[in-house]
Design a binder for these strands. Structure first.
Lengths: 339, 339
DNA sequence: TAATTATAGGAAATCGGTTTCCCGTTGTCA
DNA sequence: TGACAACGGGAAACCGATTTCCTATAATTA
């Protein structure tokens, strides 16, 4: 049987109100009784029931974390960052894996609300009207990672995906590439994937190249999907000299596919990724990419959210972090000569 | 303000007991009132407060999942499996990342107990006396993944790590290798790492080769650690013709290091891993490895745990799943001739 | 028809804490 | 020394459900 505050009160010879006061320092208590209570607590190894506590305080100490796919190293790293801060602030994290499925997302959100989590960290591709409706109604503190959302009141954290993709594409163009293909994820409104695609397009246009459809490969976020996309592309399309994969995982799928088809990377085709997951530097060839401060994003987002939960004043609720272009083996060191 | 059962009762013109009965089908209710209650619930969009519910039932609907490192694809995959079943059974998962740190582990366990989770899935290297003490005392249903533990009453799920490592090593030996090195994680009692090391040793001995210390590289579970271990090894030790890395991540670190030092894999040195994480087939070279049914382990473990939570009868509380040797590019197809 | 049993449903207790309310005691100040 | 404020601490209300207990009514049986 579990020890309750009543046992403690009885043993210490005080009321349970007093025990509560001692534990929470909520009102001064006679030092002698104070001592007795502490001893009773120790003696009985009493730990207060957080459920009962939560019922009064309307706080659960739980943070919901909604991500598309924990097996994607990007999200794993993010979750690790979240976890660190959650733990440090004495919260716990409920992990929700939506497998990129919008219905699961919504059902998870409702579940989290019903479970009375104190706040939600939300990462997803699409933010549908239903989502917005939910966020508006639920009144829960929410932080988005990796995307903005102006029309609802939520905090957000990301990098300038547009500019980063612009830079990456420009890096290819500057070195002589003209047929630069892109592997992109399904597009919806203001996702990071969309922003990256836009950055690519604009960079191409800035070099007077129309970013034609035939340069676009569609993939979801998984390695095998990118592999298949490239395979299909190799069969059907004109050759390209560079491929900008909008995530490292997709870059890996691409490189693997090219090699399987005896196309040398980077000699014949250069490839770049996005994110800088740990594997990017250990893959062979190591992958040129855009480094996002993933871990830090997770930490910052969580701090932001917890502030929001505690109704602290927040200076900036929409943060944009710096990124960095990292050159590795999947692109050549020397410029491309001719085409 | 959040709707409570009282509002519903008032609107429906019944007592809250009746509302509760309608919701839980716990006692027959007059069809007319039944209808009124349902309408009131809908009208007010009432969802019962799980915290209050939990207080009565002494159930939180939470499962704690304790893992060393979510950024390790093995654990990510496992967690994904856990998540799927947890969700399906209407539980939620609290994720605890211990970064291989035993103090964090213990503090998490206590936190989980204090939070009144209904059960714990536990993955870790070392199970110290403190751990056992905790499990014995807490009375919480616990399932171990990837290791056994005979002396305390917990469920467990794993593969035959010893035999798998034996097979992998034998695969090398059979094909002519004699200097087979191993990269192993820190050893403690009955961990999977220990079992794998034992399997390697016995396989070597079965070929009359003493598994000498000079063939052992020490690493933790991370890529970079294996990279460094191999680097050190290359400087100091006699050459080897095969390396058995006891995890895929370590195999990747090893391969990358060998290549950086102009040692060709598999031509000069063959490398094998363990686990068969998704990256194992997409790395180049793709990695020969032992396939564990990781996802399935996560699912099975969770089912087992939830049965335990509900005090259902369990036939086997210690399950050993099948594994499979997968041959890929990091080992040659043809046997090694001579040494 | 009377006696007995089954049933529906409300009041109240309960889960285990926190917090309010109130009262007796002590301390301060005029 | 008397009046009033400050303080410590217990009883009870409360958080929001579930569940027990009990009563009034309907149904069944003799």
């Amino acid at each position: 049987m579990k020890i309750t505050i009543n046992e403690v009160a009885k043993l210490a010879g005080v009321s349970k109100a007093t025990v509560s006061r001692v534990m929470n320092n909520t009102k001064p208590v006679n030092p002698e009784k104070h001592e007795r209570v502490l001893r009773a607590i120790e003696e009985l190894e009493f730990t207060p029931n957080p459920v009962a506590r939560g019922l009064v305080h309307k706080r659960t100490g739980l943070i919901g974390v909604v991500i598309p796919d924990i097996t994607n190293p990007f999200f794993a790293e993010l979750v690790k960052g979240v976890e660190e801060v959650v733990r440090e602030k004495n919260y716990n994290m409920i992990l929700c894996n939506t497998t990129h499925n919008m219905e699961k997302e919504l059902s998870y959100l409702n579940m989290l609300k019903d479970k009375y989590v104190d706040g939600i960290i939300f990462m997803t591709a699409k933010v549908s009207p239903e989502h917005k409706e939910f966020f508006r109604k639920s009144q829960l503190p929410v932080t988005f990672i990796n995307r903005k959302c102006d029309d609802i009141h939520v905090a957000s954290l990301d990098i300038d995906n547009y500019q980063a993709a612009f830079d990456m594409t420009t890096f290819f163009l500057k070195r002589g590439h003209r047929r630069v293909a892109i592997i992109r994820a399904p597009l919806t409104d203001k996702t990071s994937g969309y922003e990256r695609y836009r950055g690519y397009q604009e960079a191409m246009r800035s070099y007077d190249i129309e970013p034609e459809e035939s340069l676009v490969m569609r993939s979801n976020f998984k390695i095998e999907s990118a592999y298949k996309a490239v395979k299909k592309f190799l069969k059907e399309q004109q050759p390209v000299t560079a491929i900008f994969a909008t995530s490292d995982l997709m870059a890996i799928g691409a490189i693997r596919c090219l090699r399987d088809h005896h196309v040398q990377v980077p000699k014949q085709v250069e490839v770049a990724g996005f994110d800088d997951i740990p594997m990017a530097s250990y893959y062979s060839p190591s992958i040129t990419t855009i480094r996002q401060p993933i871990f830090e994003m997770g930490r910052k987002a969580t701090r932001l959210l917890i502030k929001e939960v505690n109704r602290e004043i927040i200076k900036t609720r929409n943060v944009t972090l710096p990124y960095q272009l990292i050159l590795r083996e999947s692109t050549l060191k020397t410029p491309v000569t001719g085409e």
